[in-house]
Design a protein around this nucleic acid. Structure first.
Length: 659
RNA sequence: GCGCCCGUAGCUCAGCUGGAUAGAGCGACUGACUACGAAUCAGUAGGCCGGGAGUUCGAAUCUCUCCGGGCGCACCA
């Protein structure tokens, strides 16, 4: 409702400016006034025009108001302050629109590809990965809500050094053969233990092992590390088989962990196939042909294929010492090189494709994984019009290199639709680190936060946090829901725990470092997911106690002829504010997509819940004696419920029946 | 050295393309439950929006500069 009216006012203003002053502006500023007493929409356009028209802003505002006349959906326009033009909505019409005509917005079109999660399959997921996955998954939901077709990809680096490190741990620290590793997996499965947790510790141990011997020993260990890496990259040997076994088992665990949060994927492209199916070779030819890559004959990068970094200015004939190496002098390709090939594939520009096989079943669909020779029948991935890479901000340089390569190859349009959806890391507060039993150096204790490190085994594992959250919500639910059975209480506890976690990760804007602390994450009061869920439960209780349904109430509400009395006067101002907030959904969605920032929607959900709670306390619905007014109040609750449930759904948060 | 991000109430954070007296949560202090369930609500206290200069009718928001903090800048992935 609000977005429509805002656009309508913009269009109307544009027409007036054209007709009256023969002016055409790029953007017409229309904003929300700070208080309802100034109306529902406002524009400071008169200030901007004052100089151009050589008139006082107030005068211009008066002229514009006079020229605006009437506009469907609006009650009046007036001049306020030094020259603001405030618009008052036709409140009854606005309320009817919100109640009956809030169809889903259709903002986006085409086919988008979102890549998120992308955890190295060599250890358990931690809270940093949770932020990535929750941001990515929520953004996917927002795009889909806006009508866009979206494929969700989770890139798996199953042949990198991180996997190599844990393989070194199995083979050289624990002395395990392929058969023994297989036995360990079976054994853990049997005992119900988590292989990713096992690897968490082993990976940390191995990382330390590399530097804990004599110089000569460390040198030998490093060699072991790279020999292992190369064996895995090459494939077709026992080391590679161990890597495949471990990385696949850990990957399955990651998918299970994410599924606890309602996060699903469509396709898992793996680095092993990017290597085996020669994606790089195809990309290399394209890169050479387009001139993006050139062979360096001089300087420190002599013997490498390099590309110019974005924004670099090189004097004619000078050697670009700062160039990015894509192919090393020994002929091997760097990470960025492989990433360029992968991104050419994402846009359908590579001329090659993965093999596909089924890997993981969700209740409503299959998740596919890359393979050398796949199933004959499979869905098509890649070839997207727009891509979003949910990758932390530390990788902005390599991301910029990939974009630069695309642009250099002449794919400017694709480069423009390549979004590095960057976000800051999740770190631990020093207090939290100490709480977890880590040895925190004195000089770190006064820092605002300490970075987590998988290499050091320093961090909070995702499943541990989820378990802890569920235990905490379960205790609360058990205390309150004594009449419900065990399974039901557990389900409610899980819904609340996940709601708390997802909201916690979404309430911060992307470029804010989250200093993680159990006290904050385990909070269920104030600006939290459970606060919003609680508002939903309250509304459902009203309908339950009142013996009616939102549908029945809205049908009755449609018959009310006169609404004006319920929407005017100081005592009803908060009710109108609630309807107005409810009507902002499409505006907020549009804003979230335009800025790639889901936090706005989280804030909107909270404010809506807050406004409802406010209304709930001030107006007792079920004891209202005037039947028409009671219907109106119930309709208000029904719309608040619909909006809260919808918006929570976009945030990936369920709305419990009770709590 | 170069690049990016951040600095807003005691703490944690919002603040839409510059716009009307700078907001929220937590914490502190006062109040409101034999209930549409208080995981809630009402109220009070608390801010030269890091410092300075500039642009503008108007700056937390844009520019420059300084201070403080973080992260990048490998023939690692």
């Amino acid at each position: 409702m609000y977005l429509d009216l805002k656009k309508r006012l913009e269009t109307h203003l544009r027409g007036v400016l054209k007709a009256k002053y023969d002016l055409e502006l790029d953007t017409i500023p229309v904003e929300t006034p700070p208080e309802l007493q100034f109306g529902e929409l406002a524009t400071p356009i008169a200030f901007e025009l004052a100089r151009k028209l050589r008139k006082a802003p107030k005068m211009i505002a008066q002229e514009i108001v006079a020229a605006l006349g009437g506009l469907d959906g609006f009650a009046s326009f007036e001049v306020a302050g030094a020259g603001y033009i405030n618009a008052r909505l036709d409140r009854a019409a606005g309320v009817r629109k919100v109640a009956f005509a809030e169809a889903g917005p259709k903002l986006a079109q085409g086919h988008a590809l979102v890549e998120h999660t992308s955890i190295n399959p060599n250890k358990a997921a931690h809270i940093g990965h949770l932020r990535n996955a929750i941001l990515g998954d929520t953004f996917v939901r927002l795009l889909r809500a806006a009508g866009q077709k979206v494929d969700v990809q989770n890139y798996i680096d199953n042949t990198g050094v991180q996997v190599a490190d844990v393989v070194v741990g199995f083979v050289h620290l624990e002395g395990k053969s392929l058969a023994e590793v297989r036995g360990l997996l079976d054994d853990l499965q049997h005992k119900g233990e988590r292989i990713d947790f096992y690897c968490w510790d082993l990976y940390a141990r191995t990382s330390q092992w590399y530097t804990s011997g004599t110089d000569a020993e460390n040198e030998a260990r490093k060699k072991l590390r790279y020999d292992t890496l190369h064996a895995i990259e090459h494939g077709g040997n026992e080391t590679a088989e161990i890597a495949e076994l471990i990385s696949t088992a850990v990957l399955r665990r990651h998918l299970e962990t994410m599924l606890r949060l309602g996060i699903e994927y469509d396709f898992l492209p793996r680095e092993s196939e990017i290597l085996h199916l020669k994606f790089w070779e195809a990309a290399f030819e394209l890169l050479k042909k387009s001139g993006v890559l050139y062979f360096e004959n001089e300087g420190k990068n002599k013997g490498c294929w390099v590309m110019t970094r974005p924004g670099a200015e090189i004097a004619e004939g000078a050697v670009d010492e700062d160039a990015k190496v894509i192919v090393r002098s020994n002929g091997t390709v760097t990470y960025v090189g492989k990433d360029i090939a992968y991104h050419l594939w994402k846009f359908g520009l590579l001329g090659r494709d993965f093999g596909y096989k089924r890997f993981f079943s969700y209740p409503n669909h299959e998740c596919w994984i890359s393979t050398d020779h796949g199933e004959a029948e499979h869905p098509h991935f890649g070839g997207a019009q727009a891509i979003y890479n949910v990758i932390d901000s530390r990788q902005s340089d390599p991301q910029a290199n990939v974009i630069q390569a695309l642009r250099g190859m002449g794919h400017a349009e694709q480069a423009d639709r390549y979004t590095h959806f960057s976000y800051e890391m999740v770190a631990l507060t020093p207090r939290c680190a100490v709480e977890l039993g880590y040895d925190v150096p004195e000089e770190d204790r006064s820092r605002p936060y300490i970075e987590v490190s998988g290499r050091k085994g320093f961090g909070v594992k995702a499943d541990d946090l989820i378990d802890k959250l569920i235990a905490a919500t379960r205790a609360e639910v058990d205390a309150r829901q004594t009449g419900r059975d065990e399974a039901e209480r557990q389900r409610i506890a899980e819904q609340i725990a996940i709601g708390a976690l997802r909201y916690f990760m979404l309430k911060y804007t992307r470029n804010t470092v989250i200093a993680f602390d159990f006290k904050d994450a385990l909070s269920f009061e104030g600006e939290t997911g459970p606060y919003i869920q609680y508002a939903v439960v309250r509304i459902r209780n009203i309908f339950r106690k009142g013996g009616t349904t939102p549908e029945a109430v809205l049908a009755e509400f449609a018959k009310l002829a006169e609404l004006g009395a319920y929407l005017s006067g100081a005592e009803n101002e908060d009710i109108w504010a609630l309807w107005l907030r409810a009507g902002r959904r499409a505006l907020v969605l549009e804003q979230c997509i335009a800025t790639s920032e889901p936090a706005h929607l989280a804030k909107h959900a909270f404010q809506l819940a807050q406004e409802f709670n406010n209304f709930y306390h001030k107006h007792h619905i079920l004891t209202e004696e005037d039947p028409a007014r009671k219907t109106f109040l119930l309709a208000t609750a029904a719309v608040a419920l619909r909006e809260l449930v919808t918006v929570l759904g976009w945030l990936g948060i369920e709305s419990p029946e009770a709590m």
